[in-house]
Structures are given as C-alpha cells and as structure tokens.
Design a protein around this nucleic acid. Structure first.
Lengths: 333, 333
DNA sequence: AAGAAATTTGCAAGCGGTTACGAGCTGAAT
DNA sequence: ATTCAGCTCGTAACCGCTTGCAAATTTCTT
C-alpha cells in the first residue's frame, strides 16, 4: 500500500465539489450550504484529510506560528515564562518555535532572520536586550514582538514585567527595618538592565531613604549558578554585609550553601532574599524568602498581548507591569 | 516608505538572471558560474533577501522543522532533555516546534495531527506512552519519531534512554548493603511504564537477590511535586521503611522536607535516593544522592538519531541506552 | 411567472519557491 | 569548419491552499 497524502483535491473530487468549497468548509466560511458542508465534513473525516499548514501559510501569509527566543530553557525562570506563553498560545491555536540564544551573542540577528524566514506571525523575546541591529531588522518586517520578563530601556517595544525597581526597594526596606546597615546586592551581569539598572535603582533608592551611603563594595556580580553562589560567599561575608538581596534563585541557593557550611546561621546571623520564587526556594534549608514574580502570568499576558498585536487590535498600554508579592520564608526574620 | 518583502523575483531582476539561478545559489547548487554566483550573492546582500521558508517548504516538501512533544517544560527533567535536543537540532539547522501535553490525554492525537499538518520532518516524544491510535496515525505518515527519556514497551519505536531497571537495581543493592531491610519505592503514576515497570522491576530484582520479600505496602504512588512528597512522608515512615528510592527529585525533596521537619535524621535514620540528579539535588540540605541520568545527552542523541532517520540513513540500533552513574551526596551513607 | 436579490458554487490567479528539461554557448576533437 | 560534450542558465510545471470575481442556482417580490 502506497502512502499517499490526501490533498484538498482528493477531498474535492470525492465530495464532488470544487476545492474552493472544501477550503471554505475547512475555514468555517459561511457561504456554504449546510447540506454541502455536512457532506464535505464526512468525506474529510473518511479520507482523514489534514490540511497542509505550509501551503495554507503560503497562500494566506499567516503561519499561525510564533517565535520564542530565550537564553536557556533549563532555567526555571524562563521555563515558567515559557509555560505561560505556551498555554495561551495553544489557546489561540498558535504553535511555538522555540529558539535558544546560544553563547554567541553575535548570532542573535541570525536567529531572528531564521525565525522571520519561517514567517512567524509574532515574536516573544526573553533575552537580555535587543540590540540596535536587531531592532532595525525587526522594524523592517512588520512582525510584532513583545518582551516577557525583559525590559526595553526606552519602552519602544511592548513588554510585560513586574516593577523590578519597586520590588527591590521594598525588599531592601524590609531588610533595613530589620536593622541591617550593610546589605549586599548580588546580581548577574550588571549589563543586563534588569539587574544593572532597575533592580540596582531600587536598591539605591531604598538605601537613600534610609540614609545609608551606597557602596559599590557591596555590589557583586556573578553568574547565575549554584557554583557561583557558593564561590562568592566569602567575598560577600568579608564585605561586612549582614544580609543580601540576590537576583536569582540558584545563586541564592549557592550562597546559602556556603553560608551554612561556614557556620553562619541564616537568618540569625545573615538574612537572604532572593528574586524568582522558583521551586528551589522551597527545597533549600532554610527555605528562601523571595520576591514572587508571577512568571506564568507574565508569559501568559505577553502572549495575549502578542495575539492582539497580530490581530491589529488597538493596545491601550504597551508596557504592562504585573503585581508581584513578597514571600517570607525562613531565610529572613 | 512601503515595507515590501523582497522575493526571489526581485533578486532575479536586480541580478539580471532568472529566479532559477537565484534558487541555485541560495541552495548551493554547483551549476552556477562563479562570476554569476558572486553577483547574485551581492544582490542578495544588498536587497537583504531572506528566502521564504514556507514557500520553500511547500516546494521542497521539507520544513526543516521538527516537533517536540513533552508533558511540562517547567519540569527540569524535560527541560534538560529539551536543551540537548535543541542544541543538536540547531546544529543541523532544524527548528523546533514545542508542544506541551496538556492535562487532557485525549488530545494527544490532536496535537500530533497539528504537528503533522505543519509538515514537521520528524518528531521527538517525551510523554508517558504512545497510544495505539497515535501510533497508527504515525505509521500512516512516514514522519520518523524517536522517544527521549521515554520507553516503548515493545521497542517498535526508536528511543534513547538509560537502563532504568539496572539503575534502580544498583541503587537498591547499595541500600541493602547498608543494612536496610525495608526500602520504600516512591514513584509517580505506576501506569507510566518507566516507574511502573522498568524501575519497579529493578527494585524487585534487587530485593529478590537479597532474599527480601517484596511487599506492596512499601510501594508508593505520588504526584511529582514537593507538596506531594511532603504529604506522603508520614505514610512512608509508618510503613516501617528505613530508606527510600524516589523516582523524581521534587518528590524526593518534599520527602526530605517532611523527614527533617519530623525530626528524622537523614541519612542517619533514613536514607534517600532520588533519580534525576537535577540541580535540586545540590540545593537541598542534606544534598540528595541520585542516579545521574545524562539528560542533556539523551536529548542530544535522540535528536541526532532523528536526523539520521530523516535522512534515510541506516540505523544500527533503534533503542539506545546511554550509561548512567550514581552520585552519592549527603542523603545516603 | 418573470425579474431581482440573495445564496452557493466554481474558476483561476496567485503565494514564493524547487527542479526537470532543454536551449545556448563554450572549447576541444575530428 | 563541423560535431559534440560539458557548463550555465532560463522556461515552466508544479507544491497545496486562499480568495476575488463571476457564473449558476435558489429564493423572494410583485
């Protein structure tokens, strides 16, 4: 038995109508007599016809596919965002093409071009920052894009986030109220505006309010990993800090590991606040207090926003800030 | 300025050759004079021509896209596999369409049909099990599929895994040697053959070797979550078990949480072995001993295998078992 | 019952590429 | 000079579906 894919022509022939009619019933076009529709649907079912989305995409210029660009899918932060995106996407019948930003920053444009060549109807970007070049490429195509859990410095690009500055401001305030004078800020690359600008701004703002001088000695930069956290502990401790706000959970867990190992009691001798409230926070001992970002929702809202943009619907606000909360567990008093 | 997408025709006109020639140089066909090739490449660059992958897909019947089906991207197990898949896929210039298996088992066939309609060149499946129906649909299309970190009961389908039975057998042996007589087996749904068959087989085999009678009272079924782990602890403890082999890290972390909370010392009073060796194992206290599955590699090898199948290359072995190891940390003696 | 209006359909021109086939051109062999 | 093989390249037929437009059919008016 030869495996033959059944096309719209086969269905048309079997149902004794033209292919245009088949196309109409498949697409739910109203201009089809009820009787015909039923007959066609039967044939479709009998022949097991499955419309070729590629051909459809070519003819209609819509791929019902969106491109999702993220740094690392094994990072729970991005995975959570991705899940929200995925759920809403499938709700709206979109498929997701997932692409990881490899090490090489350089190829970001290539990734984008590839996605555009696949004719994605929209894009969701979760990387650090859109380069000028990429923005240009983007604006030359009319493909809409929204940033999820990522920020555009000048709000040219639509994005969904929490108010990072405000969140950190609150965390530091709490720490100040607990009597700390020296609070470490442990972030990832400060070139990433989320850490290097927004969060750091909140940190500075809170210090200012408490009349504590900002000292760059208390600002640390590390990779997002347990290992890096473990490695940086000594430096943090030696800076004289008695509490730390950490911008990522793995990093915080690493710091916690080393702190405990060195005999420093958390939270009695040292308090730790982290940022993403992934499941990690619940399995460390002590459990980590954290800013709770509604990651799933951010992803979901970003995707929803994208559907509107793809639909040419009017957008009231292209920079959406979702509410966050602060979860106190055992790493703080 | 009207945004006009540049097509192969535009390039052909600008370069003063036919579109066939453009197509040839884009596809690296050798039948083009060097001089012409250079001229065309220049024009492509100048006009910023980006071949339409959809049109190309229609004409060539290849989408350079593969479908990846998994239960939950926020599960580090699958995320790690996905990363391996993604890296190899991009190495071979394939894009990945990511689809999550929602709650509803029923729509698994629908997901598959959707993917097939998108003309994916291949599929990687990480769900529990392929239903008969799905297998049938699959064999009617000639789209190759490989299972990653998932098993086909009768090896009809290509798959990449570790030897689950053997791994558990070894873990239980170790526990037996540590003097345990009552060892709990805490798995997810036993309907999933990985837990319910392969791993459980290893457990039974090891018990048999040690002349310990198998008792279903020591076998527990729970959801893969911290919460479920915390909740099941009492039952585990009350069963009289003095050690547990757990099939998933979150679950193990939950058990650990409750054990510590109840004052049971791990590993002194109770030993715990888990299975996936995700980063979770390194942030719990005590750190979790675990079977180490080469998740990234499994994903990578699965994808590599798939490329061979898509290429019609001959496959020596369609069930690949990768080596695993056992990492002892602090939850065991 | 005839003509107008409304519904259903089919025709055919794309969508932007790939590729089989053959034509034009070149240089070498005869 | 003629012939022929080997390169290069253009022509045109698809790939499977969408959709504007007009034809065909049915229904409504009067």
């Amino acid at each position: 038995m030869e495996k033959k894919v059944v096309t719209i022509y086969d269905v048309a022939e079997a149902a004794n109508v033209s292919m245009a009619t088949i196309s109409r019933v498949v697409n739910g076009n109203a201009n089809v007599k009820e009787e015909t529709r039923k007959r066609v649907l039967e044939v479709i079912d009998r022949l097991n016809y499955r419309p070729n989305a590629v051909a459809r995409g070519l003819a209609s210029k819509k791929s019902t596919t969106i491109g999702v660009i993220l740094p690392d899918i094994t990072d729970l932060y991005f995975a959570s965002l991705a899940k929200g995106i995925d759920d809403v996407a499938s709700m709206y019948k979109y498929n997701i093409i997932l692409t990881s930003l490899q090490e090489s920053i350089g190829d970001e444009e290539q990734i984008l071009n590839n996605l555009l060549s696949k004719q994605v109807d929209g894009l969701i970007y979760m990387g650090k920052q859109l380069s000028k070049k990429v923005k240009r490429t983007l604006s030359n195509s009319k493909t809409p894009i929204v940033l999820a859990g990522s920020v555009d410095r000048n709000n040219e690009t639509a994005s969904v986030n929490i108010d990072f500055t405000d969140a950190v401001y609150n965390v530091i305030n709490t720490l100040v109220q607990n009597g700390h004078k020296k609070i470490a800020f442990v972030g990832g690359s400060l070139e990433n505006p989320i850490d290097g600008k927004f969060r750091l701004d909140g940190y500075k703002k809170a210090l200012k309010k408490a009349h504590i001088n900002f000292s760059s000695n208390l600002v640390f930069e590390a990779e997002y990993s347990v290992r890096a956290g473990e490695a940086i502990w000594d430096a943090v401790k030696n800076s004289g800090a008695t509490a730390a706000y950490v911008t990522e959970d793995l990093l915080a867990a690493g710091i916690l590991n080393s702190a405990m190992k060195s005999g420093t009691k958390v939270p009695e001798d040292f308090e730790v606040f982290t940022s993403n409230n992934t499941v990690l926070c619940e399995v460390t001992r002590p459990k980590l207090s954290s800013v709770e970002e509604p990651l799933y929702d951010i992803g979901a809202v970003a995707m929803r926003l994208l559907t509107k943009m793809m639909n040419q619907e009017s957008i009231d606000e292209n920079t959406i800030k979702l509410p966050y909360s602060i979860v106190k567990r055992e790493s703080t008093r």
